[in-house]
Each structure stands twice: as C-alpha cells, then as structure tokens.
Amino acid sequence: MKVREFAGQLNMEILTGENGLEKEIKGMYICDLLSWVMSHATKGDVWITVHTHVNIVAVAVMVDIPCIIIPEGIEVEEATIKKASEEDIAILRTSKTAYQIACEAGKLL
C-alpha cells in the first residue's frame, strides 16, 4: 500500500507535504531505541516513534523506511520535517497511541 493511501485510510496528518507519498509500505515497526530500529526494522516498514529530532530521518534513510509516524499528537521539530522532505520520507502524525495505530494498520497491511 502506498503511503498516501495509508495516511488517508488511517486519517493521519501529513507533515511533509507531497514528499514520499508514493512510496510503498510493506509492514510496520515500533521502537524508540534507534540502534535497535536500525538493526531490526525491515526495508519498507512504516516506523512509529515518539522521537521527533532530526536523527530519526537519518535512521529511516539507513534502513529504507518510507514513512515515520509520530503518535499521540507529539509536536515535531521544523528541522526534522525539512530534512524528511529533502529525503523524500513522509512524516505522519495522529493523536492515537502506537497500539491503536498498529491495530488499525494490521487490518490494512
């Protein structure tokens, strides 16, 4: 499923404009330890994290994560949004918890 459709179906806010919306999502990964994510996430996973600093984009680039989801309405730094847009990685945001997002995504992916 494309990021655009995924964001629409889950009614998520898209913070990065049109960037990265055509990428394909194959699965999901949830973790906040960056080294762990790099080591265990799989290419094509959409990633849920509470971190909002710019390095989440670098981690996503390293493992070919097409899209980052920020749960619980957390504010995202401007530098992070800018960097993600440059790297063509979408950042989505929702007021839901990681668990709620995963439950809904599980029906789609």
Binding site: L33, L34, S35, W36, M38, T49, H51, N55, I56
Partner: peptide, 12 residues
C-alpha cells in the same frame, strides 16, 4: 533521551 546510547553501537 534521544534514543541513542542504548549500548548497541559497537555490537551493531
């Protein structure tokens, strides 16, 4: 707090 420093750098 940034999600680094989990002691996984060198092992990775």
């Amino acid at each position: 707090e940034m999600g680094f420093g989990a002691g996984m750098g060198l092992p990775n």
